[in-house]
Computed example of a mutant assay.
Amino acid sequence: MRNFHAKRHAHNLLTSSRGWRHQSRPRHHARHPQRRGRRIADRAAFTALFPQFLNAHEPLLPQFLILTGIFMAMSLVSLLTYGALARRARGLLRQPRIVVWLNRVVGSIFVAFGLALLRLKRVAA
């Protein structure tokens, strides 16, 4: 069994190194079915939100287009808000004193997560 895993890892390394050398060729969803599957899952999740807001006794296409427009408008507003906040944060992050404190806070959070992971116990299978 161990030999099988070694061969599989060697094969994965070989195929990934081939991909590094041939980055110029286009990648298609037919060659990467997991990308196509993710695209379908994204569409399914998007349309799963709408049925609770649709009236089955009215034409569905206009309702769907209205809901899609509302969703797109809300997405645009949220992205513009993120951009405005990033512009303000840029000024703060240029101050060395702020960066030092931010690094301390983020580092402390990662240390806390690491300690929490150490405390976890494995569940016997």
Rank of each mutant, 00 (worst) to 15 (best):
R21N: 10
R38A: 00
Q34E: 14
I40Q: 12
Q23G: 01
R36V: 10
P59D: 02
S24A: 11
A48Y: 07
I40L: 15
H28G: 09
R21S: 14
N55R: 08
L61Y: 11
N12V: 07
N55Y: 02
A56M: 06
L60D: 01
R31F: 13
G19M: 01
P26I: 02
A48D: 12
L54W: 01
L14T: 06
R35T: 08
R25P: 00
A56Q: 06
Q34T: 13
R43G: 08
S16Q: 08
E58W: 02
R38Q: 02
L14Q: 07
P26T: 04
A44V: 07
A45I: 09
P51G: 01
F46Y: 12
L13D: 03
P33A: 13
H28D: 09
L13S: 06
R39E: 11
S17Q: 04
L14N: 05
L61W: 10
L54F: 02
S17P: 00
H22G: 03
Q23A: 04
G37F: 12
S24N: 08
R38K: 03
R35Q: 10
L61M: 13
A44S: 08
H22F: 01
I40C: 10
P33K: 14
P59S: 02
D42R: 05
T15E: 09
E58V: 00
R21E: 10
A30C: 11
W20P: 02
S16A: 10
F46N: 07
T47M: 14
T15S: 14
R38Y: 00
F53R: 13
Q23S: 04
H29A: 15
L13K: 08
E58K: 05
H57M: 08
A56W: 00
R35L: 12
H57L: 11
P59K: 03
Q52M: 14
P59T: 01
R21G: 13
L60F: 09
H28R: 12
P26A: 07
Q52E: 13
R25C: 08
G37N: 15
L60A: 09
L60Y: 06
A41H: 06
D42S: 05
S16M: 09
R27T: 07
E58T: 02
W20D: 08
N55D: 09
Q23M: 05
F53I: 07
A45Q: 13
L60I: 15
N55F: 01
P26L: 05
G37M: 14
A45F: 05
